[in-house]
Simulated scan of single mutants.
Amino acid sequence: MKIIKLQNEEIARIVSDEVSIKDTQTLLDIVMGVQYETGYRQIIVDKATILEAFFDLKTKLLGEAFQKLVIYQQRLAIIGDYSSYVSKSWQDYMFESNKGNNVYFVATELEAVEKLKR
């Protein structure tokens, strides 16, 4: 885990070379583990650490996981390339999520920090 320090807050950046988020429970285990260890409620992860099935809206994994994040007042930014997801439903989902306050789909760590520091 890497810590990104801002003026008034800190953000945890999960660093991993493998797919470590395979379902809703593993996502919750990771974010709640970070909160327990550090007290941080703002987390950045790389898209590559999340099972690809999460990004298929038909599986409902994203919606289920993100609903839990909202309940537990966690904020998450996922860094990655989303250009291969071209369906209108995916684009709408990402657009609405990025307008909200809990989960963001961004391309860079800088964008993630900008979204989470608001």
Rank of each mutant, 00 (worst) to 15 (best):
L6H: 09
Q7H: 14
Q7I: 11
N8D: 12
N8C: 00
E9T: 12
E10V: 11
I11T: 06
I11K: 05
I11E: 11
I11L: 09
A12F: 06
A12D: 10
R13I: 14
I14V: 15
V15P: 00
V15I: 14
S16D: 10
S16E: 08
E18C: 00
V19W: 00
V19Y: 00
I21G: 03
K22W: 06
D23C: 12
D23L: 13
T24Q: 05
Q25G: 08
T26Y: 08
L27E: 06
L27R: 02
L27D: 01
L28F: 05
L28W: 09
D29G: 05
I30N: 11
I30K: 15
V31A: 10
V31T: 10
V31H: 05
M32V: 04
M32S: 11
G33Y: 05
G33L: 09
G33E: 12
G33F: 04
V34K: 07
V34R: 07
V34P: 01
Q35S: 14
Q35H: 15
Q35A: 14
Q35F: 08
Q35N: 11
Q35P: 00
Y36F: 14
Y36L: 13
Y36W: 11
T38K: 09
G39E: 07
R41D: 01
R41P: 00
Q42N: 10
Q42R: 11
I43M: 03
I43F: 00
I43Y: 01
I43N: 00
I44F: 04
I44V: 10
I44T: 04
V45L: 10
V45M: 14
K47L: 08
K47T: 06
K47G: 03
A48N: 10
T49Q: 12
T49W: 02
T49M: 15
E52P: 12
E52R: 09
A53S: 11
A53N: 12
A53D: 07
A53Y: 08
A53G: 00
F55M: 01
F55N: 01
L57N: 03
L57W: 03
L57C: 05
K58G: 09
T59R: 07
T59D: 07
K60L: 12
K60N: 14
K60T: 13
K60W: 07
L61W: 06
L61I: 08
L61P: 02
L62C: 06
L62P: 01
L62A: 04
L62W: 05
L62M: 08
L62F: 07
G63W: 01
G63N: 02
E64N: 13
E64F: 08
A65V: 04
A65P: 02
F66M: 01
F66K: 01
Q67D: 13
Q67K: 13
Q67Y: 09
Q67S: 10
K68S: 07
K68Y: 15
L69Y: 01
L69E: 04
V70E: 15
I71H: 07
Y72M: 06
Y72R: 02
Y72K: 06
Y72E: 05
Q73S: 13
R75E: 03
R75C: 05
L76Y: 01
L76T: 03
L76D: 01
A77Y: 02
A77S: 15
A77M: 11
A77I: 12
I78A: 06
I78H: 04
I79W: 03
I79N: 04
G80C: 07
G80T: 13
G80M: 13
G80S: 14
D81T: 11
D81A: 08
Y82I: 11
Y82Q: 13
Y82M: 10
S83E: 15
S83D: 15
S84M: 07
Y85N: 09
